[in-house]
């Protein structure tokens, strides 16, 4: 399935990427699974999306937990903890 992945703030800067269409391999059905898939690219990806780093995910613009399901056409976003207000 294909999903759109967006990155924000320090995650975007450190990955050098803002937006990407990703063909998700069969067997990956959650946000956490997608994060692990991206981490497996190695290099900056392994570092920025490391399990020890606090990275928040959103699916279709709603903050979710790593176990949240993803489906074709979803907009998934990864970003650091928010600091507005």
């Amino acid at each position: 399935m294909k999903v759109t992945v967006r990155f924000f703030a320090s995650v975007k800067e450190q990955l050098g990427r803002e937006l990407e269409e990703i063909e998700v391999p069969a067997g990956i059905s959650t946000v956490g699974g997608l994060r692990a898939h991206l981490r497996a690219r190695g290099g900056r990806w392994a570092e920025v999306l490391a399990e020890t780093r606090r990275v928040t995910a959103a699916v279709n613009q709603d903050m979710v937990k790593p176990g949240a399901a993803i489906k074709p056409g979803d907009e998934v976003a990864f970003f650091p903890p928010v600091t507005g207000g």
Partner: peptide, 26 residues
């Protein structure tokens, strides 16, 4: 509303000090 904005609304602050710019930690 303020407490929830601080933790749930997707904003990120980047401070620009004389010694350089840095993302504010949550």
């Amino acid at each position: 509303i303020m407490d929830y904005l601080k933790t749930r609304a997707p904003f990120w602050k980047k401070e620009h000090a004389a010694e350089g710019s840095r993302w504010v930690e949550a």
